[in-house]
């Protein structure tokens, strides 16, 4: 038996259940990252020798990653548009591009982390590095999660698309909302950790 109102909106909420669900989930994610941002603020306000991000980090890698994630948000929304226009081939192309850009982001993160470890910079080295690894690590896990869902939709979604394209397009929109949220978090992480 299927959960009702997964394609058409519920009359009382005006939303399909999937969309309501993803927004409630994103609200909980705001609180998760909000708690860590508050932790960052508290640590920074209470520290006498808070370093500039540039002491430990290279902002150019982060700037490149910002461009990568912004570009992936565009390919993601284009994938949704192509699915809505009932063009599965182009949907798949844009979705695979999104996943590919996620890979690029993770590779750059790997290079960054490797450079830290080569210099013996660990979370235990300084409280700044502790919050840096926590925030970027959690964010990286979110990128990875988004890549899995988007990759699944691109590689195994054709059958579902052919059965019910409207439902499939809703799923693409919901996974897109998550992906954009991940981009949004990075937009704040970039200046807070690397530049200030």
């Amino acid at each position: 038996m299927l959960i009702p109102h997964i394609v058409k909106p519920r009359p009382d909420t005006g939303l399909n259940n999937g969309k309501l669900g993803i927004w409630l989930f994103l609200a909980s994610e705001v609180m998760l990252f909000g708690a860590l941002f508050a932790t960052y603020l508290m640590l920074r306000m209470g520290s006498n020798d808070w370093p500039l991000g540039t002491k430990y980090l290279d902002p150019m890698w982060a700037a490149i990653n910002t461009i990568v994630l912004i570009t992936s948000s565009v390919t993601m929304v284009m994938a949704w548009a192509m699915s809505a226009k009932r063009n599965f081939a182009k949907f798949r192309l844009f979705m695979l591009l999104t996943v590919g850009l996620g890979f690029v982001f993770m590779i750059i993160k790997y290079i960054e982390y490797s450079a830290k470890f080569d210099h013996h910079y660990y979370p235990s080295t300084h409280v700044f590095l502790a919050i840096y690894f926590t925030l970027t690590g959690l964010h990286g896990l979110h990128v990875l999660g988004g890549m899995v869902v988007n990759g699944y939709l691109a590689l195994f979604g054709k059958k579902h698309y052919e059965q019910d394209p409207e439902w499939f397009t809703n799923r693409v929109e919901h996974s897109g909302l998550f992906w954009h949220f991940v981009d949004l978090v990075w937009i704040f992480l970039f200046p807070i950790l690397y530049l200030l």
Binding site: A27, V30, A38, G176
Partner: peptide, 29 residues
């Protein structure tokens, strides 16, 4: 990208409530 410029009223209410709690979190420090 997240289509909030033309979204359902219920989403705005959810986000407004989230924003209030988010501000409280940031004020804790």
């Amino acid at each position: 990208f997240m289509h909030l410029s033309a979204e359902n009223k219920m989403i705005y209410w959810i986000l407004a409530l989230t924003f209030v709690f988010f501000l409280v979190l940031l004020l804790v420090p």
